[in-house]
């Protein structure tokens, strides 16, 4: 019996070394649910720090407006906690937008480039900047630093490319009795 216990102990010890998990898997799983907008509306400097805070019980699950209601539901399911409506203090969900720089006004100060969390703005000092639309997460972090207010958030327009079939709804007809 003791021999068996020692053997199993050795196996477990070996397994603990061999299959050691790097990092906190819970943080990674929470991070996978978050929309990666990196907007900081949750009060943390990005999605990963917020995920870490949730995992450590320092933040609530309803602080991410871009994730929307579906995101809160997914987090509640993952963590086995009660669903809560989004906290209005952190902002409200908005339609997905991209930043657009008015290139006539841009003075090339590079402040927005430094603010962009995903390096989606291209440009150099005293040269016009532009946003790589496909990489922009719509976080709005570039709006505040711009000294000439030349950045606008434009909602992504519906096109035959991204159009979605609608949920079937039926008109209720008024019947005069």
């Amino acid at each position: 019996m003791i021999g068996l216990a020692v053997l199993l102990g050795m196996v477990l010890g070996y397994a603990a070394l061999k299959f050691k998990v790097d990092g906190d898997p819970l943080v990674a799983r929470i991070d996978a649910i978050l929309p990666q907008t990196q907007c900081g509306q949750c009060g943390f400097p990005g999605c990963k720090p917020y995920a870490t805070a949730i995992a450590n019980g320092e933040a609530d699950i309803n602080q991410c407006p871009p994730g929307g209601d579906a995101g809160v539901h997914a987090l509640a399911d993952l963590l086995g906690v009660e669903y809560k409506p989004l906290n209005a203090e952190n902002g409200v969900p908005k339609p997905k937008s991209v930043a657009v720089i008015d290139e006539n006004i841009c003075i090339g100060c590079t402040l927005c480039i430094q603010a962009c969390p995903v390096d989606a703005i291209l440009g150099a000092a005293k040269h016009m900047h532009t946003v790589i639309a496909s990489e922009c997460t719509g976080c709005e972090l570039c709006l505040a630093p711009c000294p000439v207010d030349c950045i606008a958030m434009l909602p992504i327009a519906e096109s035959p490319d991204n159009w979605k079939w609608k949920y079937p709804v039926f008109e209720i007809k008024v019947v005069n009795s």
Binding site: P35, Q36, G46, C47, K48, A120
Partner: peptide, 17 residues
């Protein structure tokens, strides 16, 4: 598509940091 975009954004953010 949103998931793919989020993965790319995460990668870019991590790379930036």
């Amino acid at each position: 598509k949103a998931k793919q975009a989020a993965d790319i954004a995460r990668e870019r953010n991590e790379f930036r940091l």
